[in-house]
């Protein structure tokens, strides 16, 4: 076997692998996206606006955005706190809590809905107690936020933990030797170093919350104009054979998700790089998240 032949077989193998990968991803991801884009174009921009402006659709979208926003804020706060506590403190039960963080990735979202409905519902002591306090969780906004919080819980924690662990003590010490006090050091050195991790967690939380369906369909029910979120609305439109309405709201949600992800890329781009990663011929593949870092 001479060198020329090996090169050829090698090149052929490479080509075959590449075709398989590109073909598979196209079939699985690109074609479905193209299908919904096509459906959306068929309707045209006028229809699109009309569809999402109907009272039912617009209220579903508004509710989804609002709940996702609240979820993101709570998740960012408690996620950051949890990540710091889990990384920096030694305490009984730390290992246990740390392992639990992955649980929302392992539990079916539908089961999440059932759990929240059970414990915060009108039949449980906690639910009754909350009800007396004037807080209705089930078939109400708090339930939606709780469901979203549960399924997005790992994002902030898991994207902050590695950054916090890798945070070089040396960088903070360098700032000290240059005369910076702990407060200045925290804001000028620590925060900028962990910011990309935090932003990744926060933005992914928002996107994930926007699309959540399984848990919310149980917890929130399907009351139009009141507890119907976008994904439930889309499901309803599909069930009632209205592909156009489903398409418009879907595309709207997809567009927001993509915009958020593009913004995330822009914000977490390594300093000094002008081009977004997906335009560059970079050696490093674009990786928005690595599941094990998050789940």
């Amino acid at each position: 076997m001479n060198g020329g032949q090996t090169m050829t077989t090698h090149a052929l193998l490479q080509l075959a692998l590449r075709s398989a990968a590109v073909g598979y991803v196209s079939l699985l991801i690109l074609f479905p996206l193209a299908a919904i884009a096509h459906q959306s174009f068929v309707g045209g921009i006028g229809h699109f606006i009309q569809d999402i402006a109907t009272p039912q659709a617009s209220s579903a979208l508004a509710l989804t955005l609002e709940a996702a926003f609240i979820t993101t804020v709570i998740n960012a706060l408690f996620g950051t706190l949890s990540a710091i506590v889990l990384v920096r403190y030694e305490f009984p039960g730390r290992w246990f809590l740390n392992a639990l963080v992955d649980l929302p990735f392992a539990i079916p979202t539908l089961v999440v809905g059932l759990m929240i409905a059970a414990i915060y519902g009108p039949t449980s002591i906690l639910g009754v107690w909350l009800q007396q306090g004037g807080v209705t969780v089930l078939y109400n906004k708090p339930g939606i936020v709780l469901a979203m919080l549960f399924v997005t819980m790992p994002f902030t924690i898991r994207s902050l933990q590695p950054v916090l662990m890798e945070l070089e003590r040396e960088q903070e010490e360098a700032a000290f030797t240059l005369g910076a006090n702990p407060w200045t050091t925290f804001w000028k050195v620590t925060v900028p170093s962990v910011l990309p991790g935090l932003l990744t967690g926060v933005f992914l939380t928002f996107v994930r919350a926007l699309g959540e369906f399984g848990s919310i369909v149980i917890v929130a029910g399907n009351i139009p104009m009141k507890t119907q979120v976008a994904s439930v609305y889309v499901y309803g439109e599909i069930e009632s054979y209205n592909p156009q309405g489903a398409t418009s709201v879907s595309v709207f949600i997809l567009l927001i998700s993509f915009l958020v992800l593009i913004l995330l890329e822009r914000l977490t781009r390594p300093p000094g790089e002008r081009m977004p990663r997906w335009f560059r011929w970079s050696k490093r593949p674009l990786s928005i998240i690595r599941p094990s870092e998050i789940g």
Binding site: E168, E170, Q171, E173, A174, V189, P192, S193, P271
Partner: peptide, 14 residues
């Protein structure tokens, strides 16, 4: 003035 073994440069600054 302190110089660290692994530079400890601020990665987010020029």
């Amino acid at each position: 003035g302190f110089v660290f073994q692994h530079y400890a440069l601020f990665k987010h600054l020029t």
